[in-house]
C-alpha cells in the first residue's frame, strides 16, 4: 500500500496531487502527518508543501470547477475532525482532472456527495462560531472570546469579525487547538498565549483583568435573555437543537 503524508494544509493537499501526477502513482491513502500510519504502510511518500506546485494545481482546478466548487473545496479542507479527510479531498481533485465533464454536481458519486455534506458541516460549524462567540471586555479595552469548535474553522471566520468589529481590539481564541487571532485595529494576526489568564473550563477571564463595567453588561444581557422567554411556549428539545449543549459553556446567557 502507498501512503502520501502531507502537512494537513490545503496547499499540502494540492501538492500531493501534483506529486501523484508527476510520479505517476496513485496512493491508497493521503494522510495528515500527525495521523497514525498503519502497519501495512510499506510505501510512504512525504509531501513537502510548495507554493508554486500548489498554485499550478489550484489554477487547473479553477479551470475545471465553478468558483463555488473551488471555495467549497477550500472550506472543506478545514474539516480537521473528519477521519481520512486527505484521501477524500485527494480523490475529489484527481477525479476532477481525470474526467472530462465537471464532476461537481454528480451526487451519484459518493465522494462528491460526501464532500458536499462535509462542506455543509464545516460551514455550519463556522456559522455557529459567528453566532455564538461571546466577547468579554478587558481592562485594556480588548474584547476576548474563547471558542471550542469541532472543526478548525477559526481561519474561516476571521474575515467576518475583522469586517464587523473594525473599531475595537479583539481576540478570538481556539481553546482546543491553542491558537487565536488578534485584531489590533489595523491587522488581524495569529497569536499563541503561553499563559492565558482564563479558566479553561468556563473560558472566563479572571476578575482582575475584566473592564469595570463588564460584569454589569453581562448581567444586563442575562436579564434580557431571561425576560424574552414566553413561558407558555417553553420547548426544551427545540432549544437544545438550535443551541447545542456543547456551546453553552462559553455563552454568557447560559452561565
Amino acid at each position: 500500500m502507498t501512503f502520501f503524508v502531507y502537512d494537513g494544509t490545503f496547499e499540502g493537499l494540492l501538492c500531493a496531487v501534483f506529486e501523484s501526477y508527476s510520479r505517476k502513482i496513485v496512493p491508497d491513502y493521503v494522510i495528515f502527518e500527525k495521523e497514525q500510519l498503519s502497519l501495512f504502510s510499506d510505501d510512504v511518500v512525504s509531501i513537502v508543501s510548495n507554493a508554486e506546485q500548489a498554485t499550478r494545481v489550484w489554477k487547473g482546478l479553477q479551470k475545471k470547477l465553478s468558483a463555488s466548487a473551488c471555495s467549497m473545496l477550500a472550506v472543506t479542507s478545514m474539516a480537521s475532525d473528519y477521519p481520512d479527510l486527505g484521501s477524500l479531498l485527494f480523490r475529489y481533485v484527481r477525479k476532477t482532472f481525470d474526467t472530462q465533464k465537471s464532476i461537481e454536481t454528480n451526487f451519484g458519486d459518493s465522494d462528491v456527495l460526501v464532500v458536499s455534506k462535509l462542506y455543509k458541516k464545516v460551514s455550519r460549524e463556522s456559522n455557529r462560531v459567528i453566532q455564538f462567540v461571546r466577547f468579554q471586555k478587558t481592562v485594556d479595552n480588548i474584547f476576548f472570546a474563547p471558542i471550542d469548535p469541532i472543526h478548525n474553522v477559526l481561519p474561516l471566520v476571521v474575515k467576518h469579525f475583522t469586517n464587523r468589529f473594525a473599531d475595537q481590539k479583539w481576540v478570538i481564541y481556539d481553546m482546543r487547538r491553542h491558537y487565536g487571532y488578534y485584531f489590533d485595529l489595523k491587522t488581524t494576526q495569529e497569536i499563541i498565549f503561553e499563559n492565558l489568564q482564563a479558566d479553561l473550563e468556563s473560558g472566563k477571564l479572571s476578575e482582575n483583568v475584566l473592564a469595570h463595567d463588564e460584569k454589569l453588561f453581562q448581567q444586563l444581557w442575562k436579564t434580557y435573555f431571561k425576560s424574552m422567554t414566553i413561558k407558555e411556549r417553553i420547548n426544551p428539545k427545540l432549544h437544545r437543537q438550535n443551541l447545542p449543549k456543547r456551546f453553552w459553556k462559553y455563552l454568557t446567557e447560559k452561565q
Partner: peptide, 18 residues
C-alpha cells in the same frame, strides 16, 4: 462599528426555541 451579514444571524435561542 458593525456590518449586516445578509443571512440573518441568530446569536442565541430562548428556551421556547425562538
Amino acid at each position: 462599528l458593525g456590518s449586516a451579514a445578509g443571512w440573518g444571524i441568530c446569536h442565541s435561542f430562548t428556551e421556547d426555541g425562538r
